[in-house]
Design a protein around this nucleic acid. Structure first.
Length: 256
DNA sequence: ATGGTCGGCAACCGA
């Protein structure tokens, strides 16, 4: 099966691009983040008309997650266990035995800002959520915009970003602590040493060779799925078309 | 060190 994660930066603004991408690549599951739309205004009919199932939780202007799929989900829920549950940041869907977790992790704003402490605690709360529900021997996929670059190879000019909320040591440690549950980083597993990024800041200077970016979008799999994973790649093609998101789709292929 | 550009939504906030 093919699974994809994509921070679309507004599902309404990017609707045509998303539907075209779905049509061309035919994934089994697509996780979207930053849909930026209330549920009543979500373009559900456009997905249904194109033959897709979709579940979503959003709010006005900010955040919002959705899971698009070929087959309908067998079970769906939103949010963490404790307040604030952040429902527009966490979607869970089960497809048969496979659990999909789609997260949009808080960005953090600045390492001095209360939102950064909130972000660090968010990772800890998410680990409790995962540990409470699942065993590492079960098939679980954790996808999304995690707003953290793991290693120096995952960001351009890492030495200048030590105090950035997406690369500061504390957030990298918080991320590793969740990975220790038993998640494999599928992109890095299949592409050791490869310097691809999934996010390019709109505010960065014109960068046609895409040398200035971050790898902050992930597909993470527990052992039974990681063993069957055959490929993972970042698709930069959408960035070469009009009105690109600041993120790129990340695709993973898993056998059976 | 700073600022750069988007999207949503109607003045700026968040990234």
């Amino acid at each position: 099966m093919k699974i994809v994660t994509f921070n679309c930066n507004s599902v309404r603004s990017r609707l045509e691009a998303v539907l075209r991408w779905l049509s061309e690549h035919s994934p089994d599951i697509l996780c979207l983040q930053e849909t930026k739309v209330q549920d009543a205004e979500f373009p559900a009919a456009a997905f249904a008309d194109a033959g897709w199932h979709v579940v979503f939780k959003g709010e006005k202007s900010y955040n919002g997650v959705a899971i698009v799929s070929k087959q309908p989900a067998d079970e769906v829920s939103f949010g963490l266990d404790t307040d604030p549950k952040d429902e527009p940041r966490l979607a869970h869907a089960r497809f048969g035995r496979v659990h999909v977790l789609n997260t949009y992790v808080p960005q953090g704003r600045d390492i001095e800002h209360p939102m950064y402490a909130y972000k660090l605690e968010w990772f800890a709360r998410f680990k409790r959520y995962v540990t409470k529900r699942f065993e590492p021997s079960e098939p679980v996929l954790w996808c999304g915009d995690l707003n953290v670059a793991r290693h120096p190879i995952d960001v351009s000019s890492p030495e200048t970003k030590k105090n950035h909320v997406c690369y500061h040591q504390a957030v990298r440690d918080a991320f590793e602590e969740v990975l220790a549950f038993g998640f494999t980083d599928l992109f890095r597993h299949h592409n050791p040493g490869r310097e691809d990024y999934s996010f390019y800041d709109y505010r960065a200077p014109f960068d046609p060779e895409r040398k200035r970016g971050w790898r902050i979008d992930y597909i993470l799999a527990t052992a039974p799925l990681a063993k069957k994973s055959v490929a993972a790649a970042i698709d930069i093609a959408p960035r070469t078309r009009p009105k690109p998101s600041d993120h790129c789709p990340l695709v993973a292929e898993i056998e059976a």
